[in-house]
Structure formats: structure tokens, C-alpha cells
């Protein structure tokens, strides 16, 4: 589903991703952990080309991203992304947030889109908030709308960029529960997070990243309980 080959990414002189490679197969849930500034978020942003890369190859479902002939927008429509800061459209209700992209990108009829959007908001437990504006929702509710909005495009791959980091502790669970359900439904997911419990429960694979490289990877049990690399040990020592 995702194939990243020897990718290098710079911000000016800053070398953010260093010769990074990654493979994710269909239905797999991959959790990426690592200290801030290690390039995790940048990697996710590169995967739907919100950021271009300077060298290397990124393939999503058999389509190479940084290719002249590639329709980036078509690829993006297949890759859902959820951000740390929710990024809901503040001028639209929850329902309209979810409906917008299927309507204007997929150009599906209004009634059909509305029905699907209501179903999606029900799935994330917000059926009674469909007419609320983002400012009237809690952080956890906003983030669930954001997930519903991404899912409404029926993506093949979902990217989660520290989606619970901006939430009050008591609101984290409602968002993680939605993500766990999604994982159980067989969605291919790449999740950048500090939630180790979540990683243990649903991750097929955990990757530790530091300074733009993947340092170590394995199952949650392997990586958390028997880390091999010194830097992995140090990082886990700080957060566990």
C-alpha cells in the first residue's frame, strides 16, 4: 500500500528525512514514535504530498507521488490525514465539514453525500452534534469530526499526526476508541503518537524514528519491552 524508498527531505539546510525507507502493507497498522523534531510529522505530510521531497520515491497504492504525470489530488483523495490541531473548517457545521470534500472533490449528489456524512458522524458517536459548529464542540468532539471528515472520502489509507496531543487527558480516550474501531475494521493506518497503550493494543508494527531515520522497528512488545538500540532505550526511558 505504501512504499517509501530512500527519501530525503530538506527544509532549507535542515536535513529532515535522511534516506528513509518504509513499507506498509494493506490493512496494517503502523505506529511511529520518536522525539519531537525526529521527522515523524514531516514523513506523514510527505505521504500525501503536502510536502514535496527532494529525492527518493514514494508510492501509494502503486502510484508514484513525485511524478510529473501523477494527479496528486486524486492520490490525496485516497489518503486521509488527521492533524494534531483538528483543522476543522470553522465556518461550517460538523455535517458540512464532513460533506464538503465528497461534494466538491468527488462531485457526488447532495442527498447521497448527506446520508453518508450522517452515517459517518454516527460512527464516531456524534449523531446529535451534526448541526454544531466546531467552536461549539469540545476538542475530542472536534477531532472525531475531523476523523469523520477524512473517512467520508473513503480513503484507502489513513494518516494520524499526533491527533490526541492537543486534547485534555479525559478526552483522549474517545478519540482513541474511534481509531481502534477503525483498525479493527481493517483500515490501513500510519499513526504518529505518544500513546503507548494504543500502540500495544492495535499496532501491528511500531517504528522508532530519530533525527530523520528509522532506528528500530518491531511489534509493540518487542520494541517497548526489549529495545535493542541505545537511543530507543533512552527515549522509552523518558516517556514510559
Amino acid at each position: 500500500m505504501v512504499k517509501v524508498k530512500n527519501v530525503n527531505k530538506y527544509f532549507g539546510h535542515l536535513h529532515v528525512l535522511k534516506d528513509l525507507s518504509l513499507d506498509v502493507s494493506k490493512g496494517e497498522v503502523v505506529v511511529i514514535i520518536g522525539p519531537s523534531g525526529s521527522g515523524k510529522s514531516t514523513l506523514l505530510r510527505c505521504l500525501n504530498y503536502l510536502e514535496p521531497v527532494q529525492s527518493g520515491e514514494i508510492w501509494i497504492d502503486g502510484i508514484r507521488l513525485d511524478h510529473r504525470k501523477t494527479n496528486i489530488r486524486a492520490v490525496r483523495a485516497e489518503v486521509g490525514i488527521v492533524f494534531q490541531s483538528f483543522n476543522l473548517f470553522p465556518h461550517l457545521t460538523a455535517l458540512r465539514n464532513v460533506m464538503l470534500a465528497p461534494r466538491v472533490v468527488r462531485k457526488r449528489p447532495d442527498a447521497e453525500v448527506r446520508q453518508a456524512a450522517v452515517a459517518m458522524l454516527t460512527k464516531v458517536g456524534l449523531q446529535d452534534k451534526i448541526d454544531a459548529y466546531p467552536s461549539q464542540l469540545s476538542g475530542g468532539q472536534q477531532q472525531r469530526v475531523a476523523i469523520a471528515r477524512a473517512l467520508a472520502m473513503q480513503p484507502k489509507l489513513m494518516l494520524f499526526d499526533e491527533v490526541t496531543s492537543a486534547l485534555d487527558p479525559e478526552l483522549v480516550r474517545e478519540v482513541l476508541d474511534v481509531m481502534k474501531q477503525l483498525a479493527r475494521d481493517g483500515m490501513t493506518m500510519i499513526v504518529v503518537t505518544h500513546e503507548m497503550g494504543f500502540a500495544r493494543e492495535v499496532a501491528d508494527r511500531v517504528i522508532f524514528m530519530d533525527e530523520g531515520r528509522t532506528i528500530e522497528e518491531g511489534t509493540a512488545a518487542e520494541l517497548f519491552d526489549r529495545p535493542q538500540n541505545q537511543r530507543t532505550k533512552e527515549f522509552l526511558g523518558k516517556i514510559l
Binding site: R45, N48, R73, A77, G80, F83, F89, L100, A101, V105
Partner: peptide, 17 residues
């Protein structure tokens, strides 16, 4: 980011967001 991440192009982002 949010709008482009959903597959919208420049005119759509401008018009709707």
C-alpha cells in the same frame, strides 16, 4: 493543509474554505 489533504485544488480551497 486540511482542504488540500482532502484532495481539493486551489479554486476549490479558495471558493469553499
Amino acid at each position: 493543509d486540511a482542504a488540500r489533504g482532502l484532495g481539493m485544488g486551489y479554486p476549490q480551497v479558495m471558493r469553499w474554505v
